[in-house]
């Protein structure tokens, strides 16, 4: 059984001090394995976005630990956390994912180039990533020459280009019609089945249902979860069979 790509243990995040402390998250445990897509569902204010920010190293927990690819973010310097973000974590947001002045392949190659990968190699990896999400033919197009669904596919390719395999998606189908949104979720799901670990934050049950496991968040607490993977995970001891 492979190690979790993302592991949150006892994560609490408080904002404010003293009498006005607001607990955005309270004692959240969550592990996401390679090949697994986990949806986090909750109303606004339930702590979904806080959870995603913590998982991506954009925010730090008040207590508890966030471990990405075996590295406890709390033990790293800011520069090291930034490196983990570049090399291990990819984001897909509702919109504004792509730089409008770059073509699809340039957008996807950008995080690799920022990390010091040479231009030619970065582009080759970017083309492969675009092929994997079914938009290889659009490599030379600019974002405004693509549909919303195509842009989200490019964003998924960029999130998982190179060695990165933790994909954090925040309402990635928000601006799309239901059929196009479903295609994007199909791609997301396929990339997870190919080995990535995905966290999908959504308030839409129909979208969450594409996940192996759905975690219900209410007022910063995980109140329940559904899905067979949850049972398997909780039944197996850490480092168990397989």
């Amino acid at each position: 059984m492979s190690a979790a790509v993302l592991r949150l243990s006892g994560v609490t995040r408080e904002h404010g001090q003293g009498d006005v402390v607001v607990q955005a998250l309270r004692g959240v445990d969550l592990a996401v394995l390679p090949g697994e897509l986990v949806a986090v569902m909750g109303p606004s204010g339930s702590g979904k976005s806080t959870l995603l920010h913590l998982a991506g190293g954009l925010d730090r927990p008040t207590s508890g630990s966030v471990v990405v690819e075996g590295r406890d973010l709390a033990t790293l310097t800011a520069a090291q956390v930034a490196a983990v973000r570049r090399r291990s974590v990819g984001y897909v947001f509702q919109d504004l994912n792509l730089l409008p002045s770059l073509t699809a392949v340039e957008n996807v190659a950008l995080p690799l180039e920022l990390d010091g990968v040479r231009g030619g190699m970065a582009r080759r990896a970017a083309r492969e990533a675009l092929d994997e999400v079914g938009v290889g033919a659009l490599a030379g197009r600019f974002p405004d020459e693509m549909s919303g669904g195509q842009q989200q596919r490019v964003a998924i390719a960029r999130a998982l280009v190179g060695p990165r395999r933790l994909l954090l998606a925040d309402e990635p189908t928000g601006a799309l019609d239901s059929t196009t949104g479903e295609e994007v979720l199909r791609v997301l799901r396929a990339r997870c089945e190919a080995g990535a670990a995905g966290v999908l934050v959504t308030h839409e049950a129909r979208h969450a249902a594409w996940a192996d496991r759905v975690v219900f968040l209410r007022d910063g607490v995980v109140v329940d979860q559904s899905g067979p993977a949850a049972a398997a995970e909780s039944l197996l001891p850490a480092g168990g069979v397989g």
């Binding site: 569902m41 049950a205 129909r206 969450a208 249902a209 996940a211 759905v214 219900f216 329940d224 979860q225 559904s226 899905g227």
Partner: peptide, 10 residues
């Protein structure tokens, strides 16, 4: 109920 319905939806 929500968990059960979600399991069905999945």
């Amino acid at each position: 109920q929500r968990t059960a319905t979600m399991a069905g939806l999945q």
